[in-house]
């Protein structure tokens, strides 16, 4: 038997919004430690890695390790049926063919359950080695989303350059060029509004706007986003999810042909 109950059910709604445009289907791996999901987009350019720790749930029971293959479009449709303040429970038997989502209103007066068929997926799992990044930028998630959206008007790609002076986002194309520079915050009253940069060496890489804009669908999950960059390593874009876990996106850079 598997059962995971989350009082802040809106987190599940936001997670689905954050992955459904990038991935059509994915396996949810459930074990003692919690729920993980790892999947690449069809083009194998980006990867989503989600981790929800069991201790972050209000109730968590997993008698046997489970892998549940789900169509994320269908899962998103079901989670749209949950209210923002609903308590969400995900339930499955051992070796399940289906998964059940239960939504309870805060006052307990309304309860709905939705059963979804599972899929048998044969997806490639990648080993993601731990690495020391050359630059780690933390900034407000809304600001990053805004910059990606704004610069996408100028071209297909964004150059992210990071140095001691700060982080610069650049794009150019037919209509002209655009640069957005952010300096490290000097005086921070609110931590979530801060821009911080940890730099070992300056870096500058080019990334496809299309994917960056997919990643920013996770913005409602977190006040801050962390961008980690290193030579010969994909960009990592990370959003913390309350005190339950995080969603990480990896993106291969563009290179000069």
């Amino acid at each position: 038997m598997f059962e995971a109950r989350l009082a802040k059910g809106a987190i599940f709604k936001k997670i689905l919004e954050a992955v459904k445009d990038l991935l059509t289907e994915a396996s949810w791996d459930c074990g003692d430690m919690g729920i993980t999901l790892q999947a690449m987009d069809n083009a194998h350019v980006s990867l989503v890695s989600l981790n929800l720790r069991s201790d972050g749930f209000d109730k968590y029971r997993c008698d046997r390790n489970l892998t549940m293959g789900m169509n994320l479009g269908s899962m998103s449709k079901i989670l749209k049926c949950a209210g923002n303040d609903d308590i969400v429970t995900i339930r499955a038997q051992d070796n399940p063919d289906t998964v059940t989502f239960v939504f309870e209103s805060e006052n307990g007066e309304k309860q709905s359950d939705y059963e979804m068929k599972l899929m048998s997926l044969d997806l490639e799992h990648l080993q993601i080695p731990e690495t020391e990044y050359a630059c780690v930028v933390k900034m407000p998630a809304g600001e990053f989303a805004r910059i990606c959206r704004d610069l996408s008007q100028f071209g297909d790609s964004i150059v992210i350059s990071c140095s001691k002076q700060g982080v610069k986002f650049s794009a150019s194309g037919d209509i002209g060029s655009a640069n957005v520079k952010l300096a490290q915050s000097s005086n921070v009253d609110k931590e979530e509004e801060a821009v911080t940069i940890e730099m070992q060496e300056p870096v500058s890489f080019t990334y496809a706007c299309r994917y960056l804009n997919f990643f920013t669908k996770a913005t409602p999950l977190s006040a801050q986003v962390k961008l980690s960059m290193s030579p010969e390593y994909p960009l990592m874009v990370e959003y913390a999810i309350d005190d339950i876990g995080q969603i990480r996106y990896f993106l291969a850079p563009k290179i000069e042909d």
Partner: peptide
């Protein structure tokens, strides 16, 4: 002209 690299060239199968 820019080429898009794939993740497979960075990460190996688990």
């Amino acid at each position: 002209k820019q080429g898009q690299r794939r993740l497979d060239s960075f990460f190996t199968a688990a």
